[in-house]
Design a protein around this nucleic acid. Sequence first.
DNA 1: CGAAGTATTGACGGGCGTCAATATCAGTGG
DNA 2: CCACTGATATTGACGCCCGTCAATACTTCG
Lengths: 280, 280
Amino acid sequence: MKHQMNATTSTLQPDLAALRGLSNRYGLESVGNLSQPNGKVRACAGRQLDLDTDSEVMTGEGASRYVWFIRSGVLRLQRYGYGGRRQVLSLSLPGEIIGYETHLRNGMSIEAATPCSLFRIEKREFDAFLTDDPDLRAEFLRQQQQQYDRLLWLTWAIGALRPDERLSAFLALATRFMPYQPLADGTGVLSMLLSRPDIADLLSTTVETVSRITHRLAEMHVIEIEDPAHFRILDMKKLASIGRVDESLAGFPECSGMQKNRINTLMRWAADQSDCLCAS
Amino acid sequence: MKHQMNATTSTLQPDLAALRGLSNRYGLESVGNLSQPNGKVRACAGRQLDLDTDSEVMTGEGASRYVWFIRSGVLRLQRYGYGGRRQVLSLSLPGEIIGYETHLRNGMSIEAATPCSLFRIEKREFDAFLTDDPDLRAEFLRQQQQQYDRLLWLTWAIGALRPDERLSAFLALATRFMPYQPLADGTGVLSMLLSRPDIADLLSTTVETVSRITHRLAEMHVIEIEDPAHFRILDMKKLASIGRVDESLAGFPECSGMQKNRINTLMRWAADQSDCLCAS
DNA sequence: CGAAGTATTGACGGGCGTCAATATCAGTGG
DNA sequence: CCACTGATATTGACGCCCGTCAATACTTCG
């Protein structure tokens, strides 16, 4: 927890840099087991909460008193279906607010898909901010809409595309909301933050199929598998066309514009909150 | 608009009754071809808009100046995927507001799944109401959340359930937001408002499979097929368990509580709007 | 080096999408 | 009243994608 307050008051850059750095030295899952055995809270100072992979953020009916602001990391909204089958229904990305009007019925829960850093806000406070600041309200509405759009995409993809098409689309879109290092020759290296089971459960397929498809794509020289967590995308055009991605960002990611749009507004008083914390 | 003002200012009963009545004399699709050949505007007086089945409500990028209040009928949000394959991503039910922050990218559009009666509201007006009336704002938020929950259910169902399970779940849930006549012996007759292609495209399967499953369910004495648009549900327990519906309304419908929750608020100034119209 | 976790590859089988044929029904005109 | 037409619903036959199960390779940490 030490020294992390600084990052809060500064811009988002450090967080992104940290994310990228983490992911670069191996897929983030392997980083998970540092201190605690598996999926426990790593640090909790004041309003901040740092989580390891697979730790639970929200569950159950009772709407908690808090909403959570995602400072870094990726969360997954999931549901354990009958027979222990899990399905990942949505991802939440840095800069997003979760838990505002979430019911989480039907065995749904929110867990960390990567190590995460969250920021707690009392729902009452948040409401106050919301009513006071029209810009923030608009921003929040836009964010809700974006999450809805992403879910629309996922629903469509699961229903209308075959597993190979879904995975191709996901890889293409992932370049916008996961660490992606473009190279001089037009290719680029994608750092896949999600584990194989997470990918499989998100795209409603199996790890075996995911593995088969990635290797098939490698044979087709569309991608290159550097290691299980790093894909070099050789032919983005082809990848996008297989995944029926309209080139014009299809709705899922749009996290690229994150820094300039929502973060500015939300981070501003995330910083304010930190100051309050210091004062108290 | 003549005389319809009365219905507006009164309760919702007339609308529901009309819906039920329509559906009872044959599935609403057959009612579609009255005056206009196929899917055209049937009536458009002032702020009100009556549509036949399959007519288009919204499409394209450009956010229209209006939001629409659904007075009666069912709308479908759909997307034509590559290769002409259609997918129904969501249904909108009476009492709901659509078109507020809708992008409708990627070939998505909103069409009438049954004859519909809509009510137009200028987005500016609506915003004004929204900021003035906190209750309305809360109501609107709740509605958005509900649509999100429904989409979550659909995503889960398509990803985690087999076609027969999905259809069973849909039938069970449909009793809550489609005309359903409970009988003395515990059974009940469901008037299916959607056409076979709509059901199939919503559940991400085919009309053939839908047909096979309904008849299989009939063999199992879970339902009874009165005619293609009317199913008598013999064993609701069984139906719900096949569809993995938690008995405790799973999120999709909850349109039963419609009358007391949202309608009261929204209908109130739907009436106000009508009055304004008269004044102008 | 052994053990555990994760990723990959192989073999098998069934569910369900696809295509085609047939059934059912409403409406029309003779 | 019946043949004809078109829309919709149903039934049958076929094939293959992909989920399932099992075995193996790879990596990391004791």
